Amino acid sequence: MAEHLVVMGVSGSGKTTVGRLLAARLDVAFADADDFHPARNVAKMRAGHPLTDADREPWLHAVAAWTAEYDHEGRPTVVACSALKYAYREVLRTAPGRVRFVHLAPAPAEIAVRVRERTGHFMPPELLASQLADLQPLRPDEDGVTVESPEGLEETVDMVVEALEETG
């Protein structure tokens, strides 16, 4: 069984960029959970409507299935996924192997700036408030770390690697 990392956080927290860099550093497979959304979810978000738990359920199962495919081959993974609620993380933990979470938690004001300045993403800035409201930080019983993520991407990846090493 392999170890799988889920880089989580609200839109604009840096999970895709940090996840890609982390996967490259660890030389493991990477996926962006946004790529697993069905078209109806993307259309809903583009229209400015937050997803419901029912919208997210098949999406989360698809992400867990991707992780399971790699685990079957004994290959570790990194996936960038919002995983905002404990219940969502429970679905992701159904994948075999060790599933660990890396919660990127920059200051909300920094996230708002990033989301406003980003181009070409289906998630409009207006939905950030609903994501921040839904966010349930990692619980003590969850296998994971929280990193405040300073501005520098390499520094953030360094902090993530150190925090993961410290927690075994």
Rank of each mutant, 00 (worst) to 15 (best):
C81N: 02
P108S: 08
G14S: 06
D158M: 12
D143T: 09
T119R: 15
F36H: 08
A29C: 07
P50W: 08
G48N: 01
E69D: 12
H121Y: 10
S130K: 12
A24H: 03
G144C: 09
A33F: 07
P137S: 10
E126Y: 02
A83C: 03
V113N: 00
D158T: 10
I111L: 04
R40I: 07
K44I: 12
A105Y: 00
H72R: 14
F30N: 03
V18Y: 04
E57P: 00
F101C: 05
V91K: 02
A112K: 08
H49I: 15
L135Q: 04
A107T: 01
P150I: 11
S149W: 03
L132H: 03
P76C: 09
R93L: 14
V161G: 01
A2P: 06
Q136R: 04
S130A: 14
A105T: 01
D158V: 09
E3M: 14
K85G: 03
P124T: 08
P38H: 11
R98M: 10
H61T: 08
G74L: 12
E69Y: 02
T17S: 13
T52N: 05
V113S: 03
Y70D: 01
R25A: 14
D53K: 09
P38T: 06
L153E: 03
D134L: 15
E148N: 07
E165L: 15
R100K: 06
T16H: 05
L153I: 14
T146Q: 09
F30E: 03
I111Y: 01
D32M: 13
V113E: 05
S149L: 12
R40P: 00
E126S: 15
A54K: 05
P38V: 14
L26P: 00
G12C: 02
Q136N: 02
D134C: 08
